Computed example of a mutant assay.
Amino acid sequence: MSVTPAPRWGREQVAQLVDHTLLKPEATAAQVAALVAEAAELGVAAVCVSPSMVAVAATANTAGVPIAAVAGFPSGKHLPAVKGQEAALAAAAGAAEIDMVIDVGAALAGDFAAVGADIATVRAAVPRAVLKVIVESAALLEFAGEAALVAVCRAAEDAGADFVKTSTGFHPSGGATVHAVELMAQTVDGRLGVKASGGIRGAQDALAMLGAGATRLGLSGTRAVLDGLG
């Protein structure tokens, strides 16, 4: 299904919805500091970094850009208590937002109670942080269908999440798609945010995700996307 981008999205408006992201395992402290400086220049919503880089980002963050960190990334196969502790340590180091990965295998097996309990553990560990739940929508749709994606989004909402997020960007099934974002947005119906992440490399990709209902974008090539908006 094609989506006609809404004409209201200008460069500044899109920038304010972007998590400027650097999650490569080879990322250095210097690169994270540069990411934070670029985020301030571009006027984005937040920077998203690995937990070990939160303190680096906080030190470099003279402009006060919100910092997000991942938990259970990228596999989601960490024990819930480990995800919770990882999130808590990141919050103590300066992260205001946490992007956690679900146990995708549990979701594919239909154990949505376990998925919800996992999310609830992280929610309890960081009660004041914005919690985004990475559901690996492409994998769910490929291996279990729409019902599984809907059920995971409902489990995230029931567990107290603030956002559902499509992808880590590391799963072989792929990243965000218009169809997944539409289905996620319909499921949460404005009660949660929807973050589209993974494979969004150009302005038209970003606009399509926003047109489908995304309220946040995870981008590693933020400047190129914004430059495509004029």
Rank of each mutant, 00 (worst) to 15 (best):
A15L: 10
F143S: 14
G76A: 12
V133K: 01
V36G: 00
A107F: 15
V36M: 02
A34Y: 03
G221L: 02
A93G: 09
V65T: 14
D162H: 13
A114I: 10
D158I: 00
G76F: 01
A117S: 12
A129C: 15
E12S: 06
G174W: 04
V135M: 12
A15N: 05
K83W: 12
A120L: 10
G116C: 02
T177L: 11
A58G: 01
A125Q: 01
V122R: 02
C48V: 12
S52I: 11
G10P: 08
T121W: 04
D227Q: 11
A88W: 09
A95S: 09
A33M: 09
T59I: 02
D158A: 15
R154M: 08
M209P: 07
R201V: 03
A120N: 02
G230C: 00
C48E: 07
V65D: 05
I119Q: 04
L17P: 00
G202H: 14
A196M: 01
T62V: 14
V150N: 10
D118P: 07
Q13T: 11
R8V: 14
V18W: 08
G199N: 03
G160D: 09
G193E: 09
V194M: 09
L229V: 02
K83D: 13
E182C: 12
S50K: 14
V47I: 07
A139N: 05
R223H: 08
G72I: 08
S50P: 00
A55Q: 11
P5V: 05
A159Y: 10
A95P: 11
E97Q: 14
G169H: 12
N61I: 00
T121N: 01
V44K: 09
V18F: 03
A196S: 13
A138L: 01
F73E: 00
E157S: 13
A81G: 11
E26N: 13
L217T: 11
L183I: 15
G10A: 01
T168M: 10
R191A: 09
V178A: 11
V47R: 05
V36L: 00
V101N: 01
A46Q: 12
Q204R: 15
A106N: 11
G221A: 13
R8C: 08
P172N: 08
P5K: 03
L141T: 06
A203D: 06
A60Y: 00
T28F: 04
G105D: 12
V181I: 04
A92C: 03
A90H: 07
G94W: 02
V115C: 08
S197F: 06
D189S: 13
V225T: 02
E41P: 00
T59P: 00
A27V: 13
E41K: 07
H20E: 05
V126I: 09
L217D: 01
A57N: 06
Q186A: 15
A58M: 06
A81R: 14
M1R: 12
P127L: 01
G218L: 01
L149A: 12
L23M: 03
I98A: 10
A93D: 15
A57V: 08
A124K: 13
A69D: 08
F73H: 09
G169Y: 10
V36R: 02
V36P: 02
V188R: 11
